[in-house]
């Protein structure tokens, strides 16, 4: 099997680029949402497709959660998917955050709206750091409050064995809202990412 694991330098490089992208995203989100969004230092690691539902179960079982996916493509064969997880005990907070004061916006639409804002803002920052640019697919609700998302996840066929998984936590400073983003970059694209990181490292 091809070695997907990172050298210490590559891991350091990715961690630093992600930290910087998070800072940039925090800044933009703070301006747009008029409230400070803190992005927490992520955990980075390789996971196998089989582990994912189990990991999510441990974290989210029994909670009133929703899961929204957004796919992206970059240059040089880089691609991946982000999954945003929300606890839906207070969907009204999201509406307030987005500045929606009309009742015409459904909960599903609010979830996809906030997801694309949180995700693309961070990923655009990351793309900049990688001297790349991403294009995005429309966000899709994988599960909402009506369905058990872990069983949905178990039914989802992952077409990869191993993926790079980055956990990122978004938190408002007043703790009124938080969510988790999981960035998954599947096997083949991890090799591309390693090549891109080597280019970045060679520049410095």
């Amino acid at each position: 099997m091809t070695d997907l694991s990172f050298t210490e330098e590559q891991r350091d490089c990715l961690q630093e680029l992600i930290n910087v992208a998070m800072g940039l995203a925090s800044d933009k989100l703070a301006r747009f949402l008029n409230t400070f969004v803190h992005l927490q230092v992520p955990a980075i690691g390789l996971v196998s497709a089989a582990e994912i539902p189990e990991q999510f179960r441990g974290q989210y079982q029994g909670l009133n959660s929703s899961m929204i996916s957004l796919g992206f493509f970059g240059d040089g064969g880089l691609r991946g998917e982000t999954i945003l997880l929300y606890q839906l005990d207070n969907a009204g907070k999201i509406a307030a955050l987005l500045g929606y004061d009309d009742d015409a916006t459904s909960e599903a639409e609010m979830l996809t709206d906030i997801s694309s804002i949180l995700t693309t803002t961070f990923l655009n920052g990351l793309a900049d750091q990688l001297e790349n640019s991403f294009s995005y697919a429309a966000p899709r609700i994988i599960s909402s409050r009506d369905s058990d998302f872990i069983s949905k996840l178990e039914q989802t066929a992952f077409h990869w064995q191993l993926a790079l998984k980055v956990d990122i936590r978004y938190e408002l400073t007043d703790y009124s809202f938080d969510c988790n983003m999981i960035l998954l970059i599947p096997g083949e694209a991890v090799l591309k990412l390693k090549t891109i990181l080597d280019h970045v490292l060679a520049e410095f």
Binding site: L29, F32, Y100, D113, I117, T121, R140
Partner: peptide
């Protein structure tokens, strides 16, 4: 109200936004 908020998010965040028929 909704669409102008969305379009302004695109302009101020310089990030794409989406709307789905679903």
């Amino acid at each position: 109200a909704w669409l102008s908020r969305k379009l302004n998010s695109v302009l101020s965040l310089q990030s794409p936004a989406f709307s789905s028929w679903e």
